[in-house]
Design a protein around this nucleic acid. Structure first.
Lengths: 213, 213
DNA sequence: TGTACATCAGTGAACGCGCGTTCACTGATGTAC
DNA sequence: TGTACATCAGTGAACGCGCGTTCACTGATGTAC
């Protein structure tokens, strides 16, 4: 590092660096898609600071990773919440939530993987699950879903979404008769079936999801 | 290592060590459940040999890991095939396949995670998927499933199974109203819904899955 | 039957590397008098 | 207004470690004559 020493933060705003470090770690993960790239020295390089500077803000690497995951769960909750808010009709909102969820996983592969492979979940890990559960409940209230146990069904659906979200790689096409796997269509079917929203309601199947893949 | 030099393999059977190395790697993964534990030196230690000995059988670490994953996919295919063979009735066979699949994931957490996080899948990675697809087809033929596209539905189900399989950790119970999450029941619901096997058929719901958790 | 030798399944020491972490420091900036 | 000083946001060098990989070797064993 022959860098000419970064322009440092003014007095009293040293905490800015804390955010910069977390953002550097996230950028590193999202760009390399390699969880192994998440090293203290690598994060410091990416943030343009020296490695020891990190210790002013995080007592050690695991704490830094913890902060990265907490922020990531926040981000996930935010995109799911925005998707739900974007649709007035309950069943459409649920599908949008599912789509937002799995798209987060596809887009931030290594980060999403890390979020769910850590030994302990962040305190805010289940906020997006709670949003999905709420979306199912509104479907039941609107008569769109036949679920008799929205909480259990939210768990089942969440597991399914988690599966689709981690199905991130383009699967070898030669195995498929389908041409490239139509993941968006697959996702809609999965959400409707697991949330027990019968197709006869029909409101959703007439509007196919936007193309993907 | 003050080990008194391992009793070595007789002439012409040096390839035995190749298997021992793969088995040591698998044991290491399954016992630590830490993908980071899968190092060349660690595997050598576990196998009771010196690190350079590995190079007689694998040109480098990635090749060794490749061999471990190929063998793991074989194992997965075997347990799924055995589960299917254990049930005569198609719908029961499909549920058994799903159960065998996710139990493999729960039991061999780090290994299963590695199998699906590697940059390229093993050539035999989709053999267990093909078994699931076959099981769905037999359900359709027997009139148990309403699926009109067993191939696509196999993908959807496979994604769901993958999600449940990676839902390996005991989730924080305080969030649940259910007591410990009833994963086996959850699994049965997921399989039946995604494979489009209506509960009215009734043959399955009368025999609850064996207890778990 | 005896013996020289090639083969083969390994070993031990060493290398350079990137890692997390520690330590003593530096130098700009706001504050007290 | 000037100046001494404490504060604070960082830095650079160094540590010990485990890693993947290389290299020259060793010593038991089967084979050729």
């Amino acid at each position: 590092m022959t860098m000419p020493a970064r322009t440092r933060n003014p007095r009293g705003e040293g905490d800015r660096l804390r955010d910069e470090v977390i953002e550097a770690a996230i950028a590193l993960l999202d760009e390399t898609n390699d969880p192994g790239a998440l090293t203290l020295r690598g994060i410091a390089r990416r943030a343009g600071i020296s490695a020891p500077s990190i210790y002013a803000h995080f007592s050690d690497l695991p704490r830094l990773v913890e902060a990265v995951l907490a922020r990531s769960f926040d981000e996930l909750r935010a995109v799911v919440a925005a998707a739900i808010a974007s649709e007035a009709e309950p069943a459409r909102a649920l599908v949008a939530a599912g789509r937002a969820y799995v798209e987060f996983g596809w887009k931030h592969r290594a980060r999403y993987g890390l979020m769910f492979s850590a030994t302990g979940y962040s305190p805010n890990a289940f906020e997006s699950f709670a949003l999905v559960e709420g979306a199912i409940r509104r479907c039941v209230e609107a008569g769109d879903s036949e679920s008799t146990d929205p909480h259990l069904d939210a768990w089942i659906l969440w597991a399914g979404l988690h599966g689709v979200a981690t199905l991130d790689k383009p699967v070898r096409t030669d195995y498929l008769r389908l041409g490239p796997l139509d993941r968006p269509a697959m996702l809609v079917s999965l959400v409707l079936r697991l949330a027990r929203i019968p197709p006869q309601g029909g409101r959703l199947s007439t509007n196919p999801p936007q193309a993907g893949e």
